[in-house]
Design a protein around this nucleic acid. Structure first.
Lengths: 111, 111
DNA sequence: CAGCATCCCACACGATACTG
DNA sequence: CAGTATCGTGTGGGATGCTG
């Protein structure tokens, strides 16, 4: 595998994409960028997501240090999720991509 | 489906991601961002890609208006691929994400 | 309330061979 | 040189049901 400059660049981006790729990662991150949220509130707001996918996605994002899980020792259980400092650093890149996405959506209508 | 503001935002980004997602799209786009390239040169430079995946990826990117195919009427065949103006607009977003990706890679080593 | 255990499937991806 | 045809597979995603 020849690691030329352009390929290193794309590798970095591919790794980044892998972390936040999947059916539900972006909706979750987007929602969390507006503030901490409880599990069931998140489930209601990320339309159509199931327990298993919400749990899996949150675990993966937590594993990569983008999301933090805050558990309160109460009965009934009370768990909140939020972005870590590292997670918040993702937002500007996502916003930049969203700006392109809007242009792209407009552009595709003209094809 | 309740289309709140945060969800519209994530939908745009999801659509953008879908277009450029997959095993080979980013390496191809990255390479093309450095200039027009012939089919077989692209194949050599995007390490490990097969004919079928290169062809498929290029067709999909062309279909979304990001890549242009320039065919010269010669024998043997001569085809070049390059980014369209719309395709070039993608680069800044990708670069922004790459900057985060580098931070993220560094960060994950500390976990 | 906040999850986990199982089973299942479609589809992106790929290996191999062939062609104008 | 620049592709296409065919067939096979791994994995991301989901339906359903159960639990501390």
């Amino acid at each position: 595998m020849n690691m030329t400059n352009w390929y290193d660049g794309s590798c970095d981006v591919i790794n980044a994409f892998t972390i936040i790729s999947g059916r539900w990662k972006l909706p979750i991150l987007w929602r969390l960028s507006f503030g901490k949220t409880r599990y069931n509130e998140l489930k209601r707001q990320v339309c159509g997501i199931t327990n298993i996918m919400l749990t899996r996605s949150l675990q993966e994002l937590e594993h990569h240090g983008l999301v933090e899980r805050i558990q309160y020792s109460e009965i009934p259980p009370h768990v909140e999720y939020g972005l870590t400092e590292q997670g918040k650093k993702l937002i500007p890149g996502l916003t930049a991509l969203r700006d392109w996405a809007k242009e792209q959506a407009e552009f595709e209508r003209t094809l």
